[in-house]
Each structure stands twice: as C-alpha cells, then as structure tokens.
Design a protein around this nucleic acid. Structure first.
Lengths: 355, 355
DNA sequence: TTGTAAGCGTTATCAG
DNA sequence: CTGATAACGCTTACAA
C-alpha cells in the first residue's frame, strides 16, 4: 500500500482524512487533544498511506536532533578495529540509548574534523583522542557545539573526563619493582603527530611520569630515547618489542602503556623463546576485555573504560540541557589487576637465544 | 567573538554584510556566482560571527542527510563489545567516509527497531543480525528507507550480502576429518529468540548444514540436541564447552561456529587440563583479527568481514542513488585458514581428569 | 552579479 | 476540539 513514487507527507494524510495538518500532528504527538475516534481514524489512514513523520523536519522544528556525536581524529575504519574504542563506545551508547539519544560517529572529512563536525546534525559531541595541542581543538571549540573531551587535561574551559593515568602507571611499575625487577623495557603509544615531543599532559605523558616516579625511588630512570614507541595495537607491540630486542635490550620486565601493545610484546617475546612470566614479566594498561583471556592472563592497570564512556555521555547530556553550565571535570580511578603475566625476577638470568 | 546567547543564522550574516541570504549561501556553496571580493568579505563576516550553516536545515532543504545507518537488533552497548561488529563497522565506515557519508547507529528504542529507525535521519540503512523471521523485518521494510541486509538469505526482494557459510563450515569439518578426528563437539550461536527452532536459512543453519554434509561422508551425524549453544562471546564458548564436558562429551575436536566461542572453548579446555592441539583440536569461524594472536593461533574459517561491510555500504549507496533499482544479492567467499589449534587425532586417547 | 520568494515537512501558537 | 498561520534555517529557481 505504501506509495512507491513519493513518500507520504503530513498534508497527504490530512487531505485523506479530511482534517488539518495540526490534527495529524496531534494524532501522533498529542492524542489527548483530539477526540479518541478522530485520533485513531487519522492514525489508521496514516498507516495505510505508509506515513512516517520526516525526522529531519521534526529536528528542524524542534531545534534539537536527539543525537550525540562521538568524534575521533582517526579514520573510523581504524578506530572501530580497536577494542578500547569499542568498549568506550559501548559506554557512551548505553547512556545515549537510555536517554533516547542516537549515536553518530564523526571522523575527519576531507582531512578536517571541523568540516565533518559542521556537517553533522548532533546536539553535542564526545571527543576522544584529541590531544590538547591538536590543531583542530580550537576549531571544534568554536563550532559552538557542546563538547566533552576525554583524556584531555589541559583545557580547563571544557568539560571532560580523565582517569588516574599517573597513579595507575605508578602502581604497575611498583608491582614489578616489588617482584625484584630492575631491568625494564618501556613500550609507549606513539604521539599523534610522528616525531612530536611528548606532551606531559597527554595520556602517555602521565603514564610515563607514573613509571618514572616509581623507578626513581630505586634510583632508576627511563631516558626518553630508551622508550620504544609504536601504534597502540598488537602489531605495534610486536614491532616495538622486536626493535628493543634487536638493539640489545634484555629486560626482565616490560611496562606497556596499552594492553594491545602488551599482548604484542608477550607474543614477540614468546616467539624469541622467552617464557612469560618465567623469563619476562609483562604489565599492560587499560584492562580491555581480552586481557582476561590471554595466556597467561595479562597483569594490567584497570581503567573503567565503559564507565568513562558513560560519564562522558552524562556530562554531555548536562551540557546540552544547559549550555551555560560551568565546565565539569571528572577523574576516574585506576587500579592494578595482578594476573598471570608477572612473576618474580628470574634468579639467574639464563642465556636466551638472541634470535 | 562568537555570539554566546544565540547561534548566528544566515540572516545575521546577510544583515551584517549588507547582502541577501542568497549571497551568503552562494559565498559558501557556489562562490563562483559572486564577485571574488564579495564572497570573501561575506566569509570573513561569517567567520567573525561564528556562523556555521545549520546542517539540519541544509538536510531538509536538500532532501538528503548524507548519513547512512547501521541497524542492529541488539543494544549498542553489547554490540560494540563484539570484535566482529567492530570489524564489520570498520568496513562500512570506510566506504561511507570515502563517499562523504556519516555513520549513524540504530538500535531498538523503546524495544522497537522500527521506532528508532523512524526517528533516525539517514538516507538508508545497513541491517546486521536480522534473521528473516525477525518480527521487525516487515516494519523496517515498510519504513520506506533503502535497506541492505547482511547475512539474510530468505528475503529476495531486499539487496544484501551474505557469505558462503555452508562451504566454509564444510571445509572446517573436512579438515578435522582428514586429521583423523571422529568425535566432535559442535558449539553454536544461540538463536535470536531463545528456544526457537533453528532457521535453516540463518547463518547458523547454513554452517550446521556444512558441518553435517562433511560428516555424512563418514556416516557421522550431529543430532540437534547434541549441539551446544550460547551467546557468541568468549564467555559463551567457555560455558558451552563446560556444559558439554559435564554431560560427558569427550570429543577430540571442537567445531565452533564463531571465533569468540572457539577461543572460549580453548580456554575452558586448557582449564580442564587438556592441551590444544595435543589432546583437542579447535576450529573457529570468522577469522577475527584476534584469531592470529591466540596461543595457539586459531585455525578458523576466514570470512572477509571488512569487505562485507564495504560491499554492504556500496550496495546501499547504489540503492540510495536509485531507489527503484533491482535488488542485488552478493555472496562473498570463505576459506579455511589452518593455524596452530588443530592437529592429528591423538593416537591413544589418554585418560583425562573428569574435572 | 545580486536579490526575491518559494519551497523542504514539521511543530506550536492562538484564534475560532 | 479543530484549523489557519507562522516559525525553524537553508537552498535555489527565477527575476532584476
């Protein structure tokens, strides 16, 4: 019965029912203001005509879209392959759904985040993975859309949520120190712009600071050049570990700044004939779902990924409700989860094949 | 400089520049039709006023949203935790981005998919995980939005993409048979509606058919009751394997209909003291990224997950361009990837602890 | 080269 | 209880 040539509009229904557009609108959104039989007759006719209110027109009229955006500086194709992002999005989605909001993903269009943001019909945006020094941040702020930033510490005017990166990293390093380890390899996420200096306010900057604070107690240090970097993926971890091995690093423990990289390091180590944790201990960071299922299960720093998404979404909802509200900044706790990938330092470091 | 009380509209810019709305519109979308200096003057003033064209108004006027939807019958919070979904979405996102489309995720609102679909401003939808018998399918079709279905075989009027589930499953079972295995445990995804009979056209129906065809050659069969089911997750796989074990199943090989479940089965087996593949071989299905990184690496049936997303998005784009186009149905190939989780059947089945 | 005016499809105000 | 009529903000013939 649906019209194949043109989608039915409110006027078509009104004409067919012999009433005004207002009546049709009421029949859907405000049935109490119509006589019961009128309302149901209108709805029947609408049904027959296959009428659906046009959501865009509704948005324009209402002045809001009931949609929130998740904004990332990376292409969606890469970001959706990242378990951390999936779990975070699950959190955002949960509160969005719960409040009747839809979810729209925004990534750079024609190279520019500002451009794609301008084209997206959202009431507000949760921005992920934006370093404070990202050149786009200013554009995004000036876009006039409510924004909540995640993992950004250096823009006090913006609402946002962060986690205790420094404390978590400190706990991770401390755990290894207590097990007797003194020779560390540090594997880090590479900075957003290749070769850029490490921003101390960034996630990686905070984590590195935590590692260093713990090591300093034992008069150990991690020179910047000693830190191995790569993309925050399993492959990135594999390559980083191999690189370190090839240049002669022979640590008894690995501090990896992300679980994916930690898993890669474990894999690379095993391929080199090392046993985990017998010959090498590995600590990750994030506690993604997968960390419980690796073999051995990964010792890591837990951060509440889904909750982070939920909190960010709640902050955004508040901001949408009252754009003039003062910025709110939340910090969520982290804690170490000891599983199977860490153990006491080997008594006597045995010779291992160098290939 | 941005107006804090009200977002600048096109009229504000027109007034400030002393021109008409048309001129302002042209300055952004059709600069050639203005004198160069006029256009740039207008853009400067717009910039100062913090003017951004309202995307919703633009959509209404243009009659399209430049957005495609990804529709799932499950809550986004669960679906984003699923690696398969992430990889599929990455594929959709890739072609969407490439064609200037945004991505909007649609999950049941107030229990109804049709409701949330009606409220979403999209030009079309890629529907994932919808069984042909899903009660919502009819509503979605009648919503009048171009739809591409994925993994649905029994609605010829709809464009869609499927994979060779039957052939892949056949290859998986055959591989194990050639290794000498004769005692199988089959672990399957549970049907969408608990307790519903298995739909032979569904993904699971096709895969089971493939297993059975291979086994039939050796006069082996898999009664429906013998199949263990659970959610398509690692935990689901763990529980399914344990359940089988507890009721006395002592297979030499596991046919798991999803990688997540296969990984769970491997884990559960190891917890019971079984070695993989020494005591037990395991084959998965899907070949998610993770399958390469488990220990041992998972032998599994590869399906081109990202490509599936890309193809679906392309089909949708075609449908959006020409709604009257005849439905197109694509089938993508699958193939077995032999890795470390399968091996020859144990010569003498050793006694294993029953707990 | 620029301006006028008519949509786009709803919702909401305010008389009747 | 019902129906004109005016927003909502932009695009685009068409006219000047």
């Amino acid at each position: 019965l649906a019209n194949r040539t043109r989608r039915a509009r409110i006027d078509d229904v009104a004409d067919a029912a012999g009433v005004s557009k207002t009546a049709v609108s009421f029949a859907f959104n405000n049935p109490d203001r119509l006589r019961a039989d009128t309302a149901s007759r209108i709805r029947d006719i609408a049904e027959q005509l296959g009428y659906r209110p046009n959501p865009v027109a509704r948005m324009l009229s209402a002045g809001r879209t009931l949609t929130m955006g998740v904004l990332t500086p990376q292409a969606l194709a890469v970001v959706f392959s990242n378990p951390f992002f999936g779990e975070f999005s699950a959190g955002v989605a949960r509160t969005a759904e719960h409040h009747g909001y839809g979810l729209h993903f925004i990534s750079p269009r024609a190279g520019s985040l500002a451009t794609s943001l301008a084209g997206a019909s959202v009431d507000g945006v949760v921005a992920l993975g934006l370093s404070g020094e990202h050149p786009e941040v200013e554009h995004i702020r000036s876009a006039g859309v409510p924004v909540v930033v995640v993992d950004v510490r250096d823009i006090p005017e913006l609402s946002g949520v962060v986690i205790d990166d420094e404390g978590g990293a400190h706990a991770a390093a401390n755990h290894l120190l207590e097990l007797g380890h003194r020779d560390f390899m540090v594997i880090a996420m590479e900075p957003p712009l290749a070769g850029a200096p490490l921003d101390p306010h960034s996630v990686m900057g905070m984590r590195l600071a935590g590692y260093r604070r713990a090591l300093a107690v034992h008069d150990l240090s991690i020179p910047d050049q000693a830190v191995l970097t790569g993309p925050a993926s399993i492959d990135g971890g594999i390559r980083a570990f191999r690189l370190g091995w090839e240049r002669g690093d022979r640590p008894t423990a690995v501090l990896a700044a992300s679980d994916a990289m930690a898993i890669g390091a474990m894999r690379a180590a095993r391929d080199l004939g090392l046993r985990v944790p017998g010959d090498l201990s590995v600590v990750g960071f994030d506690d993604i779902d997968l960390a419980r299922y690796t073999d051995p299960a990964l010792t890591t720093v837990h951060q509440p990924i889904r909750e982070k998404g939920e909190h960010a979404a709640h902050l955004l909802l508040r901001l949408i409700a009252d754009e003039a509200a003062a910025p709110v900044r939340e910090q969520l706790p982290t804690h170490l989860v000891v599983r199977g990938s860490t153990g006491p330092v080997p008594v006597r470091r045995q010779e291992v094949p160098s290939n």
